[in-house]
Simulated assay, not measured.
Amino acid sequence: MQRSFRVTRRRFATASLAAGAPALLPGCAPPAGVMPYEEAVRALWRHGAVDRGDAAAVRRELVRCATLAPSSHNTQCWRFGIEPQAITILPDLTRRCPAVDPDDHHLFVSLGCAAENLVQAARAHGLEASARFDGANKLLRLALEPTAAQDSPLFQAIPRRQSTRAEYDGRPLSADELRALERAAAGDGVQLVLLTGKPALEEVLAFVVQGNSAQMNDPAFVDELRAWIRFSAGDAVRLGDGLYSASSGNPSVPAWLGRLMFGFFFTEKGENDKYARQVRSSAGIAVFVGPSDDPAGRIAAGRAYERFALQATALGVRTAHLNQPVEVAALRPAFAGFLGLPGRRPDLVLRFGRGPTLPPSLRRPLQAVLA
């Protein structure tokens, strides 16, 4: 669901000086009137303290937790409606990514991720959220009923989860850890395929490289990705969406310089080499296959993935997407065949393992996502 470009600080600084521009680092001061990035992170990535007796405040906190879910290019392609006994999640079609996601597959997966965060947060606040997809209106309604509060490890993991687009340490996970991930993802007819053997990871890497090469040679894809990159901390805070450069381990620079240098560093070979290092440093790869190839099935896949990612976070395990084999339509049938699932549509591919924490992405304010 998310992409990144890899640039070393030294290479970026050298190229910046060669272009006659100063090389700026992540600590650059934000524009006047814009909250510092570190302050924005502290304000966002936390559990809110609300009075459970204040129903309106609780519902707003549930929505805030939902917005901490991942979305394609961090577009935050959702809108929320708050009712007395329910919360609805609707797609925000103004934030579509038609180049990488022409059939809105990732958009509805993203709604599922947000829904799962909301379900986990509701339980922690003494509410049971029962989800029902309204196909006619393409919205997800989560009815809220009182229940005993349950402060689960998955809820606690919500403000610590991130898509960590870095190399991992290469160590395998234990059998108990793998079983915990499988249990978390189970339900709603979603099939999880876990691959941990090196030969299988190399085969997936071959699909990733083939898909990445196709995307890198698609000008519409490259333009769309560039439009969602936030090259500076100031822009990341001001806009509250998109892919912040530092979240991929890259320098934070002025937007004009980032756009200027993007084409110089974002190359097919560079990206393919990066994915090879990342896959080979991972403990395994997980593939999610929803029960149906429609919005309801994609929402189910998104919910299962989010439970997996939250459980991984609780175990100290990082995750990151490798969705090229499912984003490039020409590759999907062969990839499904490799998985032993001919005729099915795999929904999500991600790698997992232990690795560093990177600067987190940001989110838009709550009022921007309320319908």
Rank of each mutant, 00 (worst) to 15 (best):
Val119Cys: 14
Asp223Cys: 07
Val326Thr: 00
Cys28Glu: 15
Ala312His: 08
Leu90Gln: 08
Leu348Gln: 00
Gly197Trp: 04
Asp51Gly: 10
Gly112Val: 00
Ala148Met: 04
Arg3Ile: 11
Ala143Asn: 07
Tyr244Asp: 02
Pro22Thr: 09
Leu144Ser: 14
Gly249His: 05
Leu25Phe: 14
Gln85Pro: 01
Leu257Asn: 04
Arg179Trp: 03
Leu118His: 04
Gln210Phe: 12
Gly135Arg: 14
Ala236Glu: 02
Ala21His: 12
Arg364Pro: 01
Thr196Ile: 13
Arg171Thr: 15
Asp104Gln: 10
Asp54Met: 14
Gly170Leu: 05
Gly197Thr: 13
Thr147Tyr: 04
Ala185His: 06
Arg280Leu: 09
Ala114Leu: 00
Asp347Glu: 15
Gly258Gln: 04
Leu194Met: 15
Gly297Ala: 01
Glu268Asp: 15
Ala114His: 01
Arg332Ala: 11
Asp235Gly: 09
Leu178Ala: 03
Thr88Val: 07
Val287His: 06
Phe288Asn: 02
Leu195Gly: 03
Leu142Met: 13
Ala330Cys: 06
Leu260Met: 14
Leu239Asp: 13
Leu358Phe: 12
Gly290His: 04
Asp235Arg: 15
Gly343Tyr: 05
Asp235Leu: 10
Ala206Asn: 10
Arg345Lys: 14
Tyr37Gly: 02
His125Asp: 11
Trp78Ile: 03
Gly211Asn: 06
Arg79Met: 08
Val193Lys: 06
Arg277Val: 08
Ser281Ile: 06
Arg238Val: 10
Glu38Cys: 10
Leu178Pro: 01
Ser213Cys: 12
Ser130His: 11
Arg6Gln: 13
Val209Gln: 15
Arg79Pro: 06
Glu224Leu: 02
Pro22Leu: 10
Arg280Ser: 03
Asn212Arg: 06
Lys269Met: 13
Ala136Ser: 07
Phe133Asn: 00
Thr267Leu: 05
Arg161His: 12
Val369Met: 09
Arg354Asn: 06
Leu370Thr: 01
Arg165Leu: 14
Arg364Cys: 01
Arg238Ala: 14
Gln156Ile: 12
Phe231Gln: 00
Gln2Val: 15
Val208Lys: 07
Arg42Ser: 07
Cys28Arg: 15
Ser252Lys: 03
Pro172Lys: 14
Asn212Ala: 08
Glu271Asn: 14
Phe155Cys: 11
Met35Val: 11
Lys274His: 10
Phe207Val: 12
Phe108Glu: 01
Cys113Asn: 00
Ala236Asn: 02
Asp223His: 08
Ala166Glu: 13
Asp92Pro: 13
Ser152Val: 10
Thr267Pro: 04
Phe335Ser: 04
Leu181Thr: 06
Lys138Val: 00
Asp104Ser: 14
Arg165Asn: 12
Gly302Lys: 05
Asp294Ala: 15
Leu331Met: 12
Val119Met: 07
Gly297Arg: 02
Ala233Glu: 04
Val193His: 09
Tyr168Gln: 02
Leu62Gln: 09
Ile82Ser: 01
Tyr305Ser: 01
Ala175His: 08
Cys65Thr: 11
Pro70Asn: 01
Pro219Leu: 11
Arg307Asn: 03
Ser232His: 00
Leu322His: 10
Gly27Tyr: 06
Arg3Val: 13
Ala175Pro: 01
Arg9Cys: 14
Ala99His: 11
Arg303His: 07
Gly316Pro: 09
Lys274Pro: 00
Ile299Asp: 03
Tyr37Asn: 00
Arg123Tyr: 12
Ala334Pro: 11
